[in-house]
């Protein structure tokens, strides 16, 4: 794992494998990384906003749990963005298949499940209050 992280920070080593691709592929790979990074920033921003703009929720620090879950998810998305960018760059240089990933599906299901849970929580509260 540390080897992989060291590799991210060593552009010379990344350039040592395969051959330099058409620069458009590298730029497209970089834009994909940036789009993932903005997704990560949106999750981190959502967590920071939840912590300060939601009222304190009655059930066991639910506001703090939502905030920390979003912040952690944002951190994971950012790290995974670098990993996927580095592996894609390597695959392009070697002319290999691009790395397949379950991550987008897992992330979408996680966000969907979280939203569904909150819908249920809101409905339960509305029924309880009415």
């Amino acid at each position: 794992m540390w080897e992989a992280i060291k590799r991210w920070f060593d552009p010379a080593e990344a350039r040592a494998v395969g051959e330099t691709p058409d620069y458009r592929f590298s730029l497209a790979n970089e834009r994909t990384f940036l789009a993932w990074l903005r997704t990560a920033l949106a999750l981190v921003g959502g967590g920071l906003a939840a912590a300060q703009f939601l009222p304190p929720l009655p059930m066991g620090h639910l506001r703090e749990v939502i905030a920390i879950a979003l912040l952690l998810l944002g951190g994971i998305v950012a790290v995974r963005a670098v990993d996927h960018w580095a592996r894609t760059e390597r695959a392009i240089r070697l002319g290999a298949e691009l790395p397949a990933s379950r991550f987008p599906a897992v992330l979408a299901l996680t966000v969907g499940a979280g939203a569904l849970l909150l819908v249920v929580a809101v409905l339960v509260r509305a029924v309880g209050a009415g």
Binding site: F9, S26, A40, V44, G75, A78, V79, A81, V82
Partner: peptide, 17 residues
Amino acid sequence: TGGRTLPLVAFGTVGLA
């Protein structure tokens, strides 16, 4: 393209989180 800037800015995001 590429270089150390990408991992650095990603880890900055992790730092903010």
